[in-house]
């Protein structure tokens, strides 16, 4: 069994009010030098068998179809470390 991580982030041009609220809370709490926070999602996908090109392609297809809305989000697929 292998594990693949899919990170989903809002595209840079899409407003992220949650990230902004987190950044504001960070400054209030005294965390210095925090200029911006963008909030995203991380999915851990466990797959049957070896992590070969076909398995990768399948997870990528799932990310494109379901995990991310590519109208507003971008995603990255990588093996879990």
């Amino acid at each position: 069994m292998a594990r693949v991580v899919v990170d989903v982030m809002l595209k840079p041009e899409i407003l992220d009010p949650q990230g902004q609220a987190i950044a504001a809370a960070g400054s209030r709490l005294g965390f210095e030098g925090v200029e911006q926070v963008r909030q995203g999602k991380r999915f851990e996908v466990e797959i049957d068998g070896e992590l070969d090109d076909a398995a990768y392609a399948e997870v990528r297809r799932m990310a494109e179809t379901l995990l991310a809305n590519t109208v507003i989000e971008e995603f990255e697929v990588r093996p879990a470390s």
């Binding site: 809002l10 899409i14 407003l15 009010p17 609220a21 109208v71 507003i72």
Partner: peptide, 9 residues
């Protein structure tokens, strides 16, 4: 397009 969290949260 898409519908996202209200700007006011």
């Amino acid at each position: 397009g898409a519908l996202t969290r209200n700007a006011s949260l």
